[in-house]
Design a protein around this nucleic acid. Sequence first.
RNA 1: CGCGGGGUGGAGCAGUCUGGUAGCUCGCAAGGCUCAUAACCUUGAGGUCCCGGGUUCAAAUCCCGGCCCCGCAA
Length: 305
Amino acid sequence: MGTPEAAVPSLRRLVEDGHDIVAVWTQPDKPSGRGDKMHSPSIKEFALARGLRVEQPQKIRIPQAKDLFASYEAEVGVVVAYGRILPPEYLRAPHRGCINVHFSLLPLYRGAAPANWAIVNGEAKTGVTTMFIEEDLDAGPILLQRETNIGETETAPELMQRLADIGADLLGETLAKLDVITPRPQHDRDATFAPLLKKQDGFIDWTSNAATIERCVRGFQPWPTAYTHHKSHRLIVWRATAEESSLDGSMGEVVVAHGDHLVVKCGDDTALRLIEVQPEAKRRMDVRDFLNGTHLKVGDRFGEV
RNA sequence: CGCGGGGUGGAGCAGUCUGGUAGCUCGCAAGGCUCAUAACCUUGAGGUCCCGGGUUCAAAUCCCGGCCCCGCAA
């Protein structure tokens, strides 16, 4: 069971390891992108290409869906970023239970967006955990874990891709050693949470330290992105670096604007040097291009709507 | 038929409402100038104004149709 791109490496690994995959469950196609085009989950594309059986129930809490799931009499259920909380019937249906691949070092960062929050919070490392699923969210007994360091300039999509690959490896190892692994219970008192991201999370607070903002720039990709406002238009910041700044200016004010250089004053005598941005309704561009077209001046202010 | 923005020399944009010589900030080329700077000055090359119709003496601009890009919302 899985849905987005991050789940694909795990499914590929299951196929390559020769596991008998009775069915692939994923979320229904949804309208996305412009217009009213329907979009299939990445997992569905992959599964269909391999000739696997795909199920996309609209509702998983109805008896028909539960019965269908139970009817497979699977040995084990594997869940990677499915995007739904599974009712208890699902957890009990496979003979050996359901295994989840979670993209953090549990009990840290339980929840929907562990990679994003790990970057935003400035963690030096994170990792992947395989565990048995229990009813409480991401709280089941741990099977295996693997750590990885977070790069200084690594973005959330980059990290996510690495974790997806690590997760696939770890899943393969977990299944291979399932008979000999002793599950370790999590200590709930050590748990932290990585809640679902909201649009508002990406709104840049220029009173923060520039280093904090820079982590938001990397961590809130590909959505909601770190953004601000300029002359009532949205401006997404895709790449930036933090630096010290003794220049005068209020927080959110442009203190340097020429050539390739666009620097915005932040809190704690720091400043954010923007490198790549994206104006509303425009494509991503280097700061030089942005400045050429907008004729932005020192003293202009970001963040005011 | 979800909402909206856009397609103009190599880049980013203005001009479109109110048709009438193709403009700005850069880049590129050549020359000049300076102890120096975010260097500066001069000159130059480079354009089917997305495509196809229509209206008009005249269309980047107005009308109809099409293609492509982007943001929002999901």
